[in-house]
Amino acid sequence: MDENLNPETDNKPEIPVCPNCNSTDILHGYPMPLCHDCRAKLINYPIPLWVKLFGAGICIVLIISLIWLPKNLTAAISLSRAEKAEKNLDFVTSQRELEKALKIVPTSVDILEHLMIASYYNNDLLTLNDASIKLQNKPIEDTAIYNKLSYIIDETKLYAPSDTFAKTFQQYKDGIVPDAALSDYVSKNPSDIFAMYSLASSYDDKKQYKAADSLLSKVLTIDNEFIPAINFKTKIKRAIDQPDSSIFYCNRILALNRQSVYGISAKARTLLKIGKKQEGLNLAKQGYQLDKNMTYNLATLAIAYHLNNDLKARDAIIKTTDKDTTTAYYMNFAKDFISNKATL
């Protein structure tokens, strides 16, 4: 790639002639004795057709790259933000950024991997399932991610009944298993987390909170990070008037996911119960900022506004959710609380 200069020869004629056309009509004032026409011609030294075509090809490739650039750049920035948020355990932010990136690059293995992680900690099982289906048969090269995803898959398996459980209770077509049968099964299968959790849930429905608490403690002895049990503990401990313990479990959720709206909302309810009304309201508002549609937190917010005598804001929350049947369960609780039919 040399760029050679000074092609002057040793045999300089007395009268300079243009080396290109031998004309003596030299244009003076330049290093090389060229005539006017040759100088003009050599300044515009012809570019061969194949080089022009090559250049045109490069220009087309450049245009294609520039067209692709903005979308890929946006997706990459979102993915990087999501990774940063994941490191900070801010999984709501992480999932939000990943969903933005996924709209642009729906087949990205990297985005789907991180989405699985974020949705797991956000308890968004639909997104988790969707991402895991899309990742099936895709090689995962990063060992740390692979281990994390394996852990998540193992954990979520515990959310569903085991084969033994399903076989044992197949006679109950409607899925409602009597407590006695469940209790018997649990005593025979003391490591079946799903069975223990189901029984604890049944005890909770019957307001047998101590029994539920005891079972959930056993679950956590087997699997210290079983998120549904930690979530459940926040409620049970509040129900048996152990607010410190309830807050302990809220903080455990928040240690796994600093943006767990359930964790924030559960903590708000416990604080409201012990009379820390303003703190409870602030937390419910914080949860609302993270997720404006989470019905559990909408109910908490309505309760918090009620306890802080902001009836206008309370009624506005209730009104916005009135036509939504999916929010009915939690909002009915809020309405019962407001009319003194239920307690936190």
């Binding site: 790259s65 520039l66 692709w68 890929n72 990459a76 993915l79 087949t107 990297d110 090269e141």
Partner: peptide
Amino acid sequence: MLIAFPAALPVFKFDN
């Protein structure tokens, strides 16, 4: 840089 930029992202960032 401009030609490789958008392609480097699928290879090294998106894994697709």
